[in-house]
Amino acid sequence: METAIALRRVGAHGQLACLLLPPLLTLLILFVAPISLMAVYGFWAIDENYLIQPSLQLTQYEKIAGDPLYLGTLASSAGMALLTTIGSLALALPLAYYIVRFVSPRWRVLLVLALIVPGWVSVLIRTYSWNLVIGEAGLMNWLLMSAGVIDEPIKLLFTKTSVVIGLIYIYLPYMLVPTYASIERLDNSVLEAAENLGADPFRRFLYVTLPLIAPGIVAGCVITFIPAVGEYVVPNMLGGLKGMMYGNLITTAFSNFDWPFGAALSMVLLASILACLLIVGRFLDVNRSMLGHE
């Protein structure tokens, strides 16, 4: 009761402060401060006794730029994440279109949920489950061998392909949700107008549908690509040496106790992601002004 009176006395400003401060402090302490510290750490170094030497030097970044392993792996991770993004878009787009176009509204949400709920099962378990499908003793090889298509099991596991398959599997729900939402919002009368004006299905898709659902597609691509570039569990469990990704390098630096180097590697990843976001944002702005939207 006393708190209630006290609360009323401090008024709206105090109320807002009471609401805002705990989550704000949490985000500042658990997110902003650690990331900022990591940015500083990247300029530090360790001596031969693995003691941290606070300094302001670019040794770590020079090391990253000097060895093609690091930027090469970053580039191949970006390539794999791009394949993942394209792959999951190729799966999500026709699927979302089918659900919106041919399924009654009652069943639509249920069908979409049926693809999202498995996505809430631990990444570790879902990744591991692909061992049972594409592993040497897995379902795929067993089926192909008992059908007599192949004599030797296909060694698909521990390659880049197996990592991309795993990534598509993990990130499909991320792509599906925004794509589905944008297709569902599509106004059918616009499409009919295009049809009446003589546009064939291909042109209709390219000039009418695509620009309208583009924001959903871009959102899906962004939230798929970003976590996929930095993925650690999937390449670690399905990748082996051939399918290594940038996340594995970061972990290796940290398990070698070379924290400044790990921090610098992480900052390079963060900066690349930020650059991608800025480019996508810029591209969208240009696109919008050209199409005359908004």
Binding site: F31, A33, P34, M38, Y41
Partner: peptide, 22 residues
């Protein structure tokens, strides 16, 4: 700021929290 932790890769948050804690 609230959305950011949703977007950053998990590994970045893992290592930065480890650095900060230490």
């Amino acid at each position: 700021l609230t959305v950011m932790p949703m977007l950053a890769p998990g590994i970045i948050m893992g290592v930065s929290l480890l650095l900060f804690a230490r």
